[in-house]
Design a binder for these strands. Structure first.
Ligand SMILES: [Zn+2]
Ligand SMILES: [Zn+2]
Ligand SMILES: [Zn+2]
Ligand SMILES: [Zn+2]
Lengths: 159, 159
DNA sequence: TCAGTCATGTTATATCATATCAATACGAAA
DNA sequence: TTTCGTATTGATATGATATAACATGACTGA
């Protein structure tokens, strides 16, 4: 589980298996992966990069799947709620989930060079933040953990 | 250091000492805490809450300190760069720093009930995310750690 | 005093996101 | 199969967040 996103890999196979897992999830949970939603997910998964809602909309629009912002935001909303995509808060952008189904608390490594995003796991409750929360009597419902920096490839290109 | 923000405390004294620390920082580092910037910081510190840029602008504007968005964004940019305020990415909002000067990697506890924000410390390098980053050869430059949930007071009010 | 830099004023615009209502498609129940 | 309720999509408008660009003014140090 160490950041396949930054490594060379058979991405065609990577996409296929991820889409299959996403479909399985939807079937199992009675969710409808409609054409727009499915295509939106494929677009997000096409590269391990964060895409803005309007970038996604441009792709969808080019394929005749809708032209107005709500089209993109509805698809993203569905995918995020279904755990098939994640929002990167630091970028106001979205990325396809590479382990759909795992009911996870993801953390992200975000390259500021190429905008690639790798997904890791967190355990908020075991973190120092978890300690602080307990001490303060704060009940954590959701956590955002995002690290920005440079991926191995972009480090070689210097800045 | 356990989340004074959620507890009853002498907030007038809290603000005074924080402002003094902020001034000391600016003096020491040759930064200019101009009237707009100073007032912006006071407004952010007035409550331990995240404030949107336009909320801040409304306050400043009411006091004759500027009417256009760049006024607020410039002040916020200065304060954030100086470490006197922080941006809460999950809210697109800003909060005054209660430990200015400490060159820290802050983490936040954000109440969805009252929008209060408490600041804690992280140690990204010691986290599981740090492990994942090292394993992937990713160089972390900045980290965003934000936990949303309910503060003690808002838990009592149920949902 | 003058040049250089930092800060502010002002206008315009870019970018991200949602409210609302109408029309349609779908699936379960009768 | 028809009917009804709900989920989805289409379309228009608007709200919310953020920055570009350029002019003007203030402070600083030669
Ligand atoms: Zn891949
Ligand atoms: Zn990169
Ligand atoms: Zn206080
Ligand atoms: Zn609260």
């Amino acid at each position: 589980m160490s950041a396949i996103e930054f490594r060379d890999h058979d991405h065609a196979a990577c996409m296929r298996s991820t889409m299959q897992a996403a479909e399985a999830q939807c079937t199992a949970r009675g969710l409808r992966l409609t054409p727009v939603r499915r295509r939106a997910l494929e677009i997000l998964l096409a590269e391990h990069r964060a895409l803005g809602a309007y970038d996604l909309l441009a792709h969808l629009s080019a394929e005749g799947l809708g032209t107005q912002p709500p089209v993109a935001y509805r698809a993203l909303d569905f995918l995020v709620k279904a755990g098939l995509a994640h929002k990167i808060e630091a970028l106001n952008a979205y990325v396809g989930c590479v382990q759909p189904g795992a009911d996870h608390a993801p953390a992200f490594l975000i390259c500021r060079g190429c905008r690639s995003v790798a997904e890791a796991e967190t355990t908020p409750s075991q973190s120092r933040l978890g300690d602080a929360a307990r001490a303060a009597g704060f009940r954590i419902e959701r956590s955002v953990v995002e690290a920005e920096g440079l991926c191995p490839a972009c480090q070689k290109d210097d800045i």
